[in-house]
């Protein structure tokens, strides 16, 4: 579920396991992402000028979901470094591959409580 709490021109969005804030500044919108240390990083600034609030919010959410997609990355076998048992080559996952994700450490998709809406996982509100 996506939860939105409204405070005038600012909205908090909990998407997957991350917290985003959408802030209207003048006629444009900024999107920030909460970091593990509590600070906020700017995802985008000066966006969606002069759009109606509802359109801007919908586009902000779509942009967040594009930049931070839900899902796991599939990593192929590490054929260059097989473990050998006699003549037998045992090929494990390529943990040195840049796309390898340690599920509980690296993944932005590691939601604590999730359920399925129209084929997409969203996290519950914390």
């Amino acid at each position: 579920m996506i939860t939105v709490s409204e405070r005038k021109t600012m909205k908090n969005i909990f998407y997957n396991d991350m917290e985003f804030t959408i802030v209207k500044t003048g006629s444009t919108w900024d999107i920030t992402r909460k970091l593990p240390n509590g600070d906020f990083a700017v995802v985008g600034a000066g966006l969606f000028a002069d759009l109606p609030d509802s359109d801007a919010e919908a586009r902000a959410l779509a942009l967040i979901m594009t930049i931070f997609p839900v899902g796991i990355k599939i990593v192929g076998p590490d054929v260059a470094h097989p473990n050998r048992v006699g003549d037998l080559k045992i090929v494990g996952p390529d943990v040195t591959h840049p796309n390898f994700v340690y599920w509980e450490k690296d993944s932005t998709s590691f939601a604590r409580e999730t359920y399925l809406i129209k084929g997409t996982h969203y996290a519950n509100q914390r």
Binding site: D30, A41, V42, V43, G44, A45, G46, L47, I67
Partner: peptide, 25 residues
């Protein structure tokens, strides 16, 4: 590097720029 993205996006925002940052390979 997400940290580099975050830094540059913030610096561009601070000068009034319109910007997004995307981590990708």
């Amino acid at each position: 590097e997400q940290k580099n993205i975050d830094r540059v996006v913030k610096e561009i925002k601070d000068i009034g720029g319109e910007v997004i940052g995307i981590q990708a390979n």
